[in-house]
Amino acid sequence: MDVFMKGLSKAKEGVVAAAEKTKQGVAEAAGKTKEGVLYVGSKTKEGVVHGVATVAEKTKEQVTNVGGAVVTGVTAVAQKTVEGAGSIAAATGFVKKDQLGKNEEGAPQEGILEDMPVDPDNEAYEMPSEEGYQDYEPEA
């Protein structure tokens, strides 16, 4: 019985440690998101679009440190934060509304985080759909 109880105690310690790591990862992701939003706020009209992409990228980098179902929630929060940063930029006159959601080359930025393969159960990952990809044929 002692062996059984000791095993359960060790398992509990492992769960607590994993929860603490997840909590730490979420806190880091939130900190990076805040950094990115402050970065966007300090940019001029020309830099705002690039700044919004930076927020998304920093958040995406930190999301990889967070495991399990938390990833889905962090990704949703990050996307809403990026959308909010863009709205703030438009409201303050840093950028025109028609410039939001495009990178410096004018290509749409939507789907940055949505296409990231995420499995809350950590069982399997699927690649994003290939609808947006084109076949590449090298020139002879």
Rank of each mutant, 00 (worst) to 15 (best):
K6Q: 02
G25S: 10
G14Y: 15
A85D: 02
V16Q: 04
P108S: 08
Y125M: 03
D135L: 10
G106S: 14
D121A: 08
G51S: 03
K97F: 02
K97G: 11
Y39I: 09
V52F: 15
A53V: 10
K102I: 09
M1R: 00
F4W: 05
E57T: 06
S9G: 13
E46H: 05
K58P: 01
V37Q: 00
K6W: 03
V63F: 10
L100R: 08
V16A: 06
A85L: 14
K34A: 10
V71F: 09
A91E: 05
A85H: 03
G84L: 12
K10D: 01
N122S: 08
K32W: 15
Y125T: 09
A85C: 13
A85R: 03
T81G: 05
G67D: 01
G132Y: 13
S9F: 11
S9T: 02
S42A: 14
V49D: 01
K23Y: 15
V3N: 03
D2I: 02
T33R: 01
E114Q: 07
K45T: 09
D119V: 05
G25W: 11
Y136T: 06
E105Y: 07
K12F: 15
I112R: 07
S129P: 11
Y39S: 05
A89C: 10
I112W: 09
K34Q: 02
E28Q: 06
N103Q: 09
G51P: 01
Y39N: 03
V37G: 01
A30D: 00
V118R: 10
P108Q: 12
E13A: 15
P120A: 10
E57A: 08
G31C: 01
G68W: 15
K10F: 04
I112P: 11
K58C: 06
V37Y: 08
T64W: 07
A56W: 13
V16H: 04
V74Q: 01
V55W: 15
V63T: 02
A107V: 07
A11S: 02
E57S: 04
V52H: 01
V26E: 00
V70L: 14
Y133M: 09
A76E: 05
A89R: 07
K23L: 13
T92S: 07
Q24C: 03
V37A: 06
K45P: 02
A90K: 06
G93L: 07
G86N: 12
N103R: 07
V37F: 14
E110W: 04
P128L: 11
P117G: 13
K6N: 08
G86V: 12
E131K: 07
G31L: 12
T54L: 14
P128G: 05
G36V: 11
T92F: 06
G31I: 04
F94P: 03
K34M: 03
Y136Q: 08
K97I: 12
V52Y: 05
G84R: 11
Q99C: 10
